[in-house]
Amino acid sequence: MISPGKKKLKLTIRVWRQKGSNERGQFRDYLLQGISPDMSFLEMLDILNEQLLDHGEEPVAFDHDCREGICGACGVMINGQAHGPDNETTTCQLHMRRFQDGDTIVIEPWRASAFPVLRDLIVDRSPLDRIMQAGGYVSVNTGQAPDGNCLPVPRHDQESAMDGAACIGCGACVAACKNASAMLFTSAKVSQLAQLPQGQPERAQRVLNMVAQMDAEGFGSCTNTYECEAACPAGVSISHIARLNREYVKASFCSTAEPTIPMK
């Protein structure tokens, strides 16, 4: 609702500043005034940056792109919560009406050894790409496909596969996990393809390799605290992790496949 009458907020922003991956970082406090409750969180950061530029300071670097909650580029820890206090919401879709006048907001980058900080709030999430490279695909070349309706997919399976496929790859699961585990991310793709007929030929190999790659990247292991699920902006459920576990055991004991990714 467009509500001009809403009270503007005065906030203290405590944000992590770090010039480069090899430099030491520290928290800095900035005072912001006149923040409209209808602003998105990133628009608040925009205002902060404009203010910093006015003072000749370097603006806070943060990843963002689509600003509609789907690209997965944005994501910071806000008062210790990945993507802030709302469930199923990315940082860009979080609005300042969730905060109170006078609040101090602590903003930190995703922290995980596998995600080194590049600058301020920007981290390197390329390990997630490498997990996908290890098997997050169906090996079908362009031009080889049969008619789309050749393979009926029960609607229930398709819906469940879509639940996993909805992952936006933002890394909040890693950030929220006390072990910095990437299990929710990895399982979302494993689960999607395990439930579809297209994924069957590589089903065993896929899970073995993706898990091996995940381990090799230095992510922690899952200890079932389910913080990932709560932090996930795409609502990916930990039932996908269970499916990954199942798939992994099945692949290890009931198939001839072996991981081809070198162990760490």
Binding site: M77, G80, Q81, V106, C177, A180
Partner: peptide
């Protein structure tokens, strides 16, 4: 897992 811990952490 984490070479630097969070300043604050809060469950969602």
């Amino acid at each position: 897992a984490r070479n630097k811990s969070y300043r604050t952490f809060d469950s969602k």
